[in-house]
């Protein structure tokens, strides 16, 4: 048996043991996401398509899987879905500006050795692909935070139907504040772990601080970490606002409908 198969089998068994049906769904969501990611990459190899547009479509599909497939379709998940999409679009604009200026796309000089056998003139826009890498590494955290805020907001609204839009928004923000620390932490450590080899490399070859900060690979990694943090921060007010708006709005609509019926 191969390592990946064994690990996947253990993960599947554990997920079923803990989560039952939901566990199976969570496991398959991982596979669907992997499929979407592969398709995205294959589409990106076509130079006639704009990688940013492909990324946006992929993000919509991934958010759909993460939010609607793992959970269920209801008002909570719908608001979480729309908030994720809005955040991703805003973040993508920002990241596009950053990658255009900071020139962090593609490969760094530390990687030249293994690149020497490849043709690098492949006609695909690596600046835009760089932007899509950053957004894709954050999307899991964005959808997670969106669901984590919108579902307690709905509970709050259920128990206090008279709550105002503003109070509901503040409630969402206060939940978001508690999640912000742990979500950001999750991403930080995921990236730290991934860059362990790179950090050892820099230290082993005694790079100076100036060389590290300005090198393409390091600045690309650290900018990814910061953009991920910005994404997790942005989703909080956006979800709170959209959830508050939708929840109070639908109630008012129901009220007018009742009113109409009565008259």
């Amino acid at each position: 048996m191969n390592v990946l198969m064994s690990l996947a089998a253990i993960l599947l068994i554990l997920m079923i043991w803990i989560g039952g049906k939901k566990g199976i769904r969570s496991f398959f969501a991982l596979f669907f996401n992997f499929g979407v990611l592969l398709l995205t990459i294959i589409f990106m190899t076509n130079p006639n398509f704009n990688p940013i547009i492909i990324t946006l479509i992929a993000c919509v599909v991934i958010s759909y899987i993460n939010i609607f497939y793992i959970n269920a379709v209801n008002t909570t998940t719908t608001t979480a879905f729309f908030s994720s999409i809005i955040t991703i679009v805003v973040l993508l604009f920002f990241i596009d500006i950053v990658t255009n200026n900071a020139m962090i796309q593609g490969f760094g000089e530390e990687e030249t050795e293994e690149l020497s056998i490849f043709s690098l003139y492949i006609g695909v826009d690596f600046v835009k692909i760089g932007a899509s890498v950053i957004i894709m590494s954050t999307i899991g955290a964005i959808t997670d935070t969106a669901v984590a805020i919108s579902s307690p907001m709905r509970e709050m609204f259920k128990h206090n139907p008279t709550i105002s839009k503003k109070e509901l928004f503040t409630f969402g923000l206060s939940i978001g504040k508690d999640i912000l620390g742990t979500s950001a932490n999750t991403l930080f450590f995921a990236f730290f772990g991934g860059y362990m080899a790179l950090l050892i490399w820099f230290k082993d070859l005694s790079y100076s601080v100036g060389e590290i900060v300005n090198s393409k690979i390091f600045s690309a990694e650290i900018i990814t970490i910061f953009c991920a943090g910005i994404g997790v921060g942005l989703i909080i007010p956006i979800t709170s606002w959209i959830s508050a708006f939708f929840l109070v709005q639908t109630k008012e609509k129901d009220k007018t409908r009742l009113h109409d019926k009565k008259s």
Binding site: F34, G140, A190
Partner: peptide
Amino acid sequence: MGTMTNILFF
């Protein structure tokens, strides 16, 4: 469980 594994995956 599901969302956390997805965060790491991406």
